[in-house]
Design a protein around this nucleic acid. Structure first.
Lengths: 196, 196
DNA sequence: TATCCCATGTAACGAGTTACATGATTCT
DNA sequence: AGAATCATGTAACTCGTTACATGGGATA
């Protein structure tokens, strides 16, 4: 069957997340990938335009009626109710071990969209699961190190150790992020500091 | 033109690196991806076997003459001189900004193989370049934060900050790794500590 | 008017994923 | 003998990459 049965790709869900903030054109979406550090994916129109079309065949987005006024040619799309539901489902999906070990980037994407497009209990649950899975992964790495660290060449060992450290840092980040979300949101800047 | 003109993929170079440690069969290579944390890529035979074939058409590997003795059916390949040269070229290649920002995983792979398959001046040069590019990237991130951090939703900001921290950690790792390589290799363990 | 950039697409191509097929060998 | 696993491969499919094509609006 043409697209619709198959699982959507991370790129498609990411586009949903971006479109959740308002209607956008294919070009807009390309620009976002090209000009922000969230450029997890390519800015190539050859990837983005077809992905938007797939979202249309899924009925997750629909073209915005073309404004009658002149100006540059634009073709904007917006989320449908089904699209919003698909986004919610993606955001609330339980992270798997495979994602934690092989596709952390997609998880960061998901998390980044959560505070806008998911109920407030989703991000903490997400962080708890990721934290648990990262601890498992860390244990696996320790086990591996115990009986293979000896045979690793120097640079190989350095890479391995950095990987392990990165997992530890991410684990700490999970805890910190959970605390930050628990606190009532506070606007940034030094406004809070009062009387010295 | 069939494979040979085109740039080899990271998977192909990674296989070269693994084969540099001795002849291996396709199955062996699959097992390595499946059982070690260097499983940057999939353990799927559908990826590995065709990649090995491509390496053969490039004349970078060649099949090992089949041992006449019984035992399990195996088809091992080993590096050719051209393969070793291609591996060296890959390892000595100057890292690009795009690799640093979008494909750090491939760079880790390269570095991991360096102490075995490249002259000793290559790893430090690599670390220096990566360090420089990471600093550039960090500056880009700071610039981005300066004028966009305000609009980011809470979880988006947390992801961004974690990304920035990761870059800082990797930067520190580059410095530490360079120092570690500069020191004469020392076997691990607490053997060095003397009389407190 | 000429030129550059905005904006949307398409076509060819290759790699990786998933799933399946097939035997031979070792283990129980 | 039967089961599990070793070991090699192939076929279908889809996505992303690269490169190209087009053409209207802005800018000089």
């Amino acid at each position: 069957m043409p697209p619709g049965t198959r699982q959507a790709t991370t790129l498609e869900y990411t586009l949903l997340g971006l479109l959740d903030q308002g209607p956008q054109s294919g070009y807009d979406l390309c620009r976002i990938f090209a000009t922000t550090p969230f450029a997890l994916y390519s800015d190539s129109p050859g990837a983005v335009y077809p992905a938007v079309r797939r979202l249309e065949t899924r009925r997750w987005v629909e073209p915005l009626p073309r404004g009658p006024v002149g100006g540059r040619r634009r073709r904007e799309v917006r989320l449908t109710a089904a699209g919003r539901a698909a986004l919610s489902e993606w955001l609330a999906r339980e992270p798997t071990k495979h994602e934690v070990t092989h596709d952390m980037g997609a998880l960061y994407m998901r998390f980044a969209f959560m505070s806008q497009a998911a109920p407030p209990d989703v991000p903490p649950r997400f962080l708890a699961t990721v934290g648990r899975l990262l601890e498992e992964h860390l244990a696996d790495l320790e086990r591996f190190a115990a009986d293979a660290s000896g045979q690793m060449p120097p640079t190989g060992r350095l890479v391995f150790e950095h990987g392990r450290e990165s997992v530890r840092h991410t684990l700490e980040w999970c805890a910190r992020a959970a605390r930050a979300l628990a606190k009532p949101a506070r606007s940034h800047g030094s406004r809070v500091r009062r009387s010295s």
